[in-house]
């Protein structure tokens, strides 16, 4: 059997251990799927695969055990998924019957968000789908995940871009009964940004992470849900070389700013990627160019909202494997 492995990998099929057997990755932008597609995925697994499914860490499905001989047929079969889950949200796909047009930029994942979760500050799936629309299809390897709040249940701290929902809490002293539920909770579970002095609550804006817990705790809505913002943590990664957690890049960024910087990242990669490697992840490119260069280029043409704070320097640390464990 002869085929172009590079082409087929871009088509979201994997070269597996077993000769002539492949596996197909199905994206689920925003991690939320209409249940009707599950029966189609089941059909593919039963008909072309080995009847099993792997749930990926990025909230997609991988269908193993497909014969390479069938990949064109499988592509035709998944057309409704590309139509309904990609084209529908605005992703440009020339011909849905030819399978996924790229695989480099990974599925944009999201926690369950405010469609369900009480802590979430926004609709993560909806915003993930907007980002998917802007950046997919694309061959560059970029990982993005969205969390509704700084709990970061989607583990945005292990992504190139972790986008965490924030909200500005607005205090109305005239509605406060001084129960201190917000203050105690902030002290025990968050960052101790709140204190109670002179029979009123004070918020230390430097410590506040905009999680919105004070709003949730308040029995009188003395904390008003203000504007929605985002914290963006960047260049976290697993992997063999220097795994590390992402570090804060932006705080109190508006949605427009977040969307704009994500769009800008592809030009930056284009300019600096090491093409001698099969694929270079963006974090390693930033290691090479340095954070100041990354910052300068990614903010090009971006109009920052007045509340937005930007990291001056970032030192990711992480760890390097030495002689001992």
């Amino acid at each position: 059997m002869s085929f172009n492995t590079k082409k087929i990998k871009k088509n979201a099929f994997r070269i597996t251990k077993d000769r002539e057997v492949t596996a197909l990755r199905i994206r689920v932008p925003g991690g939320h799927i209409n249940a009707k597609y599950l029966s189609l995925i089941k059909e593919i697994a039963d008909e072309y695969g080995n009847g099993t499914l792997h749930i990926t860490t990025r909230q997609g499905f991988e269908v193993p055990g497909i014969s390479f001989a069938d990949f064109e047929e499988v592509n035709k079969k998944i057309a409704p998924i590309l139509e309904g889950m990609e084209k529908e949200i605005g992703v440009k796909i020339a011909d849905p019957r030819e399978g996924y047009p790229a695989a480099g930029t990974r599925n944009v994942s999201a926690c369950i968000g405010n469609r369900v979760c009480r802590y979430s500050n926004y609709d993560t799936t909806e915003m993930a789908q907007q980002i998917e629309k802007n950046i997919f299809p694309n061959d560059y390897h970029v990982k993005i995940a969205l969390s509704g709040c700084p709990n970061d249940c989607i583990k945005g701290h292990l992504q190139d871009f972790g986008i965490l929902g924030m909200v500005e809490p607005i205090y109305h002293q005239e509605r406060c009964i001084g129960c201190k539920a917000c203050v105690d909770n902030c002290h025990k579970r968050v960052t101790s940004a709140l204190s109670f002095e002179q029979e009123r609550v004070l918020r230390d804006e430097k410590r506040c992470i905009g999680c919105g817990e004070c709003i949730l705790q308040c029995p009188t809505n003395a904390w008003e849900r203000g504007e929605q913002f985002f914290k963006v943590v960047i260049m976290g990664r697993t992997g063999k070389k220097n795994p590390r957690l992402a570090k804060p890049f932006l705080k109190w960024a508006s949605r427009d700013v977040v969307i704009a910087i994500v769009n800008n990242v592809y030009d930056y990669i284009e300019r600096h990627i090491d093409t001698s490697l099969a694929k270079e992840h963006i974090g390693y490119i930033v290691d090479r160019t340095g954070y100041p260069k990354f910052k300068e280029e990614i903010l090009k043409g971006v109009e920052l909202n007045s509340e937005c704070e930007i990291a001056d320097k970032i030192n990711w640390n992480g760890y390097q494997t030495g002689e001992k464990i």
């Binding site: 405010n114 926004y122 909200v167 709003i215 949730l216 809505n221 008003e224 849900r225």
Partner: peptide
């Protein structure tokens, strides 16, 4: 609009 404790929920008051 969107002013109750949970995000995207309306406050009736």
């Amino acid at each position: 609009k969107n002013k109750d404790s949970f995000s995207a929920n309306d406050l009736i008051t």
